[in-house]
C-alpha cells in the first residue's frame, strides 16, 4: 500500500535525482572546445559542432535511421533482460545451495575474464542468426555482474528480519514477496545501472561485426566513408539513449526506495 501524498516523512519524487547544472556547463564547455578545435583542424578530424548537430537531428527526424537506434536499444534491453532473468535464477540457486555455488563461482569468474570480442567471434562461429548472435553476446558479457550483484544482495539480507518474518510462518511465495524481493531490489537496480553502460559498449562491438542495422552498423558505415561528423552523431545518439534509460532507472529507484532516509549532511 502506498502512503497518502501528504505524509510528512516519506521520500518523494522531489527527493530524487535533479538536473545537474554543473554537468550541463561541462558538456557545453566540451562543445565549445570542440568548436574551437574545428577552426584549427580539417573537418574529417574535428567537424564543426553545427554539422554534428545537423547529423543528430537528421537521425532523429529520419524514420529509417531512427529504426537503427531503436534496433540497438531493443538489443540492449533484450540482452539485459535475458541476463537479469538468468542471473537472478543462478544467484538464487547459489544462495540456496552452497554446493552449486562452489561449482558456479569459478565459472562466472572465468566468464568475467573473457573479452567481449571473444564472445563476438564465438557467437559468429556457433550461431547463424544475427539477432541471436547479438543476444548471446549481450547475455554472456552482462551475466556475471547481474549474478554477483543479486547474490550479494541475497546474502546480505538481514538475518533479524528473516527470523522475524519466519516467526509468522509465511509460505515460500510470501517470504519471497514480503522479504526477499524488497531486500534484493536495491542491488538489482544497481546492477541494471552498471550493466546498462557496459551493454551499450558491447552491443556496438557486436553490431560492428554481424549486423545489417543498428548504431554499430551505422558507425561502421561512417568509418568507411570517413565521415567524422556522422560517427560522432551516432555516438551521441547512443549516449542519449543510455542517459535516458539511466534517468528512467534513477526515477524508478527514487520511487521504489523512497523509504530510505535522506541525510541533511553528506560525507
Amino acid at each position: 500500500m502506498l502512503p497518502p501524498p501528504d505524509a510528512p516523512t516519506r521520500g518523494t519524487w522531489r527527493n530524487g535525482p535533479r538536473w545537474n547544472y554543473e554537468g550541463v556547463v561541462a558538456l557545453v564547455g566540451l562543445a565549445v572546445a570542440w568548436q574551437i578545435a574545428s577552426y584549427f583542424f580539417p573537418p574529417f578530424l574535428f567537424p564543426p559542432v553545427p554539422a554534428i548537430a545537423a547529423h543528430v537531428l537528421d537521425i532523429f527526424l529520419s524514420g529509417k535511421t531512427l529504426l537503427d537506434v531503436m534496433a540497438t536499444a531493443l538489443r540492449i534491453l533484450a540482452g539485459l533482460a535475458g541476463a537479469f532473468v538468468l542471473g537472478a535464477a543462478i544467484a538464487v540457486l547459489m544462495g540456496r545451495a552452497p554446493r552449486f555455488s562452489r561449482y558456479a563461482y569459478p565459472l562466472l569468474n572465468f566468464n568475467q575474464g573473457v573479452p567481449a570480442l571473444s564472445w563476438v567471434v564465438i557467437s559468429i562461429i556457433w550461431f547463424k542468426g544475427t539477432e541471436f548472435r547479438i543476444f548471446f553476446i549481450m547475455l554472456m558479457t552482462t551475466l556475471p555482474a547481474f549474478t554477483f550483484q543479486i547474490l550479494d544482495s541475497y546474502r546480505a539480507m538481514s538475518k533479524d528480519l528473516l527470523e522475524m518474518t519466519l516467526s509468522f510462518r509465511p509460505s515460500r511465495l510470501d517470504l519471497l514477496r514480503t522479504l526477499v524481493w524488497p531486500s534484493v531490489l536495491p542491488g538489482i537496480l544497481t546492477a541494471w545501472k552498471v550493466n546498462l553502460g557496459n551493454a551499450s559498449r558491447v552491443v556496438v562491438v557486436a553490431e560492428l561485426v554481424g549486423a545489417t542495422g543498428g548504431v554499430g552498423y551505422q558507425l561502421l558505415l561512417q568509418q568507411q566513408v570517413f565521415d567524422m561528423a556522422g560517427a560522432i552523431a551516432w555516438t551521441i545518439v547512443l549516449v542519449i539513449f543510455v542517459l535516458l534509460a539511466q534517468r528512467i532507472i534513477d526515477l524508478l529507484e527514487t520511487w521504489l526506495l523512497r523509504y530510505r532516509p535522506v541525510a541533511e549532511r553528506t560525507l
Partner: peptide, 19 residues
Amino acid sequence: RLMPWRTAIENVALGLELN
C-alpha cells in the same frame, strides 16, 4: 526488527497479511 521499506501500519499488518 521493522522492515525499513514498510510504513508503520504496513509493518503492523505484516502478520495479518501473512495470515
